[in-house]
């Protein structure tokens, strides 16, 4: 799917999305079929008749939910990264720049400290963390709104300061936590995909999908924003409304993701840049492609996280950072990447 010199057409968009959807399905099947209990790909493709009861339980109760959740997380984080990069006109923006993630991690860590959740029941932690994200969202929006306007500088500054503050707050909690709690906290913060039931995943997925669709509907507005807010206004974009919606929906996507899985870094940074290089900067294609590509990326990263040193697990946030960091530097140094990055 190399980028054509010509502008985006519906046919090209559909072609790219279908290909990416194919890649995602392949990654899902691969990730679902690999793991501690060996279930071969062929067995998986022939479903029930070849699967034993234990295998079926592993596949449908343990592995598939986790793989699906990883896909939802990857899609959400990448979408949030893309819209924040467009809104802040800053290629280094990622889902966490707003500081909402700081609020979510405070909430999650507090829940772990107060014993409201454990490694086995992470739903309580997630709920508490999402509450933290919402509180942070309203606080940051309130602080960053000057004279009724949400300005990029104040958003960035408020976000940076709020993240620094929440970092300090979390250190404080860690210093008073027991050793067992400390382990849970550290693991949560490093980011890992938990095991939830289908209903929870479906709810999370539906909320994310809705937010992503609304953001996608504003894709051309993000294109018009590439030469600044004043320029977008005169092209006919209601920039103030665009900023509020993007801030709110992007923060919700980020807040949900962090609440569920902790801080999984680099997904929202590397995937958008890689796709922009390959597919071009048009957000009508970039947003849905990022959603599919980000999902595939995190599914594979999570596969690596749980199989590389099995039966032990690496936090998936560590995998994405170890792979994403060097890769991002490579993109930045490469000649082709410079147009999009610096």
């Amino acid at each position: 799917m190399p980028r054509p010199g010509a502008p985006l057409t519906l046919r090209h968009l559909l072609g790219c999305l279908l290909s990416l959807a194919g890649v995602l399905v392949l990654c899902l099947v691969l990730a679902a079929s690999l793991g501690a209990g060996k279930i071969s790909l062929i067995q998986l493709l022939r479903w029930g008749d070849a699967l034993g009861e234990v295998d079926a339980a592993i596949l449908f109760q343990v592995r598939l939910p986790r793989v699906l959740l990883a896909a939802v997380l990857g899609g959400s984080l990448t979408t949030a990264g893309i819209v924040f990069q467009a809104l802040l006109r800053n290629p280094l923006a990622d889902p966490y720049v707003l500081g909402v993630s700081g609020g979510a991690s405070i909430g999650g860590v507090l829940a772990l400290l107060l014993g409201l959740g454990s490694a086995n029941s992470q739903l309580g932690v997630a709920a508490f963390a999402f509450l933290g994200a919402l509180l942070a969202l309203f606080l940051i929006e309130w602080v960053a709104t000057v004279d009724g306007h949400l300005t990029v500088y104040t958003i960035l500054l408020t976000g940076a300061i709020f993240n620094a503050f929440s970092g300090a707050f979390i250190y404080f909690i860690q210093s008073v936590a027991s050793l067992e709690q400390l382990h849970a906290i550290v693991f949560y913060l490093m980011g890992s995909v938990p095991s939830f039931g289908y209903a929870t995943i479906a709810g999370f997925g539906a909320a994310s999908l809705l937010a992503i669709l609304v953001l996608w509907s504003m894709a051309r507005d993000y294109n018009a924003l590439s030469a600044g807010e004043e320029d977008a206004i005169q092209l006919g974009v209601d920039v103030e409304r665009l900023k509020r919606r993007t801030f709110l929906l992007g923060a919700l996507l980020t807040g949900l993701s962090v609440a569920v899985a902790g801080l999984i870094g680099f997904v929202g940074l590397v995937v958008p840049h890689l796709l922009r290089l390959v597919l071009g900067p048009d957000h009508r294609l970039l947003l849905p492609a990022g959603c599919l590509g980000g999902a595939a990326f995190l599914v594979v990263a999570d596969l690596v996280a749980r199989t590389l040193i099995a039966p032990n697990e690496i936090p998936v946030g560590v995998v994405t950072a170890l792979v994403g960091g060097p890769f991002f530097l490579y993109l930045m140094r490469s000649k082709k990447g410079r147009g999009g990055l610096v």
Binding site: G5, P7, A86, R89, N90, P91, N223, S226, A227, G228, D231, R276, G280, P281, D282, G339, G340
Partner: peptide
Amino acid sequence: ISFNFPFT
């Protein structure tokens, strides 16, 4: 004006 994404 300056553009910060590589649009053609």
